[in-house]
């Protein structure tokens, strides 16, 4: 079983501390949801773990199967099994989805090994069918001119093809209507139930997504820390009481 351990992690942008000591351990097959108001450091956490150059880790560690990833380049972390589903996926003009994913898979092979093209396409089409992505999309440039929902589905498609050990999903539900949300959730759940069974960190504002991807753990993040953890019922409680409730409780606790 794989593990992703976030240990007392502190992250800054420039001189400004954003994440101020956050610990969390995720194991294969588990879904952890992180909820919290805007500007509390949720996206920073995901991007910094993936190795984004804008963020500086000022303290703590991130261990993948016991090994620190902080000295690794972004692409090394990715090949080691970390996947980030972006809140705002980049457009890559002229590079087709099929070629992009093929290059990404090829990058995981040893030198001299080649991808079996027919097996690759068979697998790609199967995953696309599952995510209700038109097969014609294989020849479209990655995210170029995609609607918000298409971009998010394309993220899940990449996750399905790359089979990461851990997926950090950054507001995958934002910009999705209810039908698209259901399709995306089905895609994630299918992976969850498969032999790959990645550990998932779901970052979201809203309880809505958690009706479709049922979390094992829910954490509430505020001001760069996890201030409350619980099971699925915590998300419902948050939905009912709003984030002000957390702020008041946290302010009271730290007073």
């Amino acid at each position: 079983m794989a593990s992703l351990e976030i240990q007392n992690l502190q992250i800054s942008i420039g001189d400004k501390p954003i994440v101020k000591g956050l610990s969390l351990t995720i194991r294969s097959g588990e879904v952890h949801a992180i909820m919290g108001p805007n500007g509390t450091g949720k996206s920073t956490l995901a991007k910094a773990i993936a190795g984004h150059p804008d963020y500086t880790i000022t303290g703590g560690d991130v261990l993948l199967d016991g090994k620190s990833v902080l000295e690794m380049e972004t692409d090394e972390r990715a090949r080691a099994g970390l996947f980030l589903a972006f809140q705002y996926p980049s457009e890559i003009p002229g590079v087709t989805i099929a070629n992009f994913l093929r290059a990404a898979l090829q990058a995981r092979l040893a030198e001299g090994e080649e991808i079996d093209a027919s097996a690759y396409y068979k697998r790609l089409y199967a995953k696309m069918d599952l995510l209700k992505i038109d097969r014609k999309f294989t020849s479209r440039a990655v995210n170029d001119g995609f609607s918000g929902g298409e971009k998010k589905r394309c993220e899940i498609l990449q996750m399905a093809m790359l089979e990461p050990k851990f997926a950090l999903m950054d507001e995958t539900d934002s910009g999705l209507d209810i039908d698209a949300l259901r399709i995306v959730a089905e895609g994630v759940n299918a992976q969850r139930g498969s032999a790959i069974s990645p550990g998932i960190l779901l970052i979201t504002h809203y309880q809505r997504l958690l009706d479709y991807i049922i979390p094992d753990h829910v954490h509430v993040m505020w001001d760069g820390r996890i201030v409350k953890s619980g099971d699925k019922s915590l998300a419902l409680e948050l939905e009912a009481k709003g984030y002000d409730w957390v702020k008041q409780e946290f302010a009271a606790a730290s007073a």
């Binding site: 993936a50 190795g51 984004h52 150059p53 804008d54 380049e73 972004t74 692409d75 990715a78 090949r79 996947f83 980030l84 972006f86 996926p89 980049s90 457009e91 890559i92 003009p93 002229g94 590079v95 070629n99 992009f100 994913l101 290059a103 990404a104 990058a107 995981r108 440039a141 990449q158 790359l162």
Partner: peptide, 24 residues
């Protein structure tokens, strides 16, 4: 930088990512 980061996050090296962007 965001485009290169995106591609690197999928496992491509910085050089491979730039090359893919140029070929695109």
């Amino acid at each position: 930088e965001e485009m290169i980061f995106y591609m690197q996050q999928r496992g491509l090296t910085e050089g491979q990512a730039m090359s893919l962007a140029v070929n695109g």
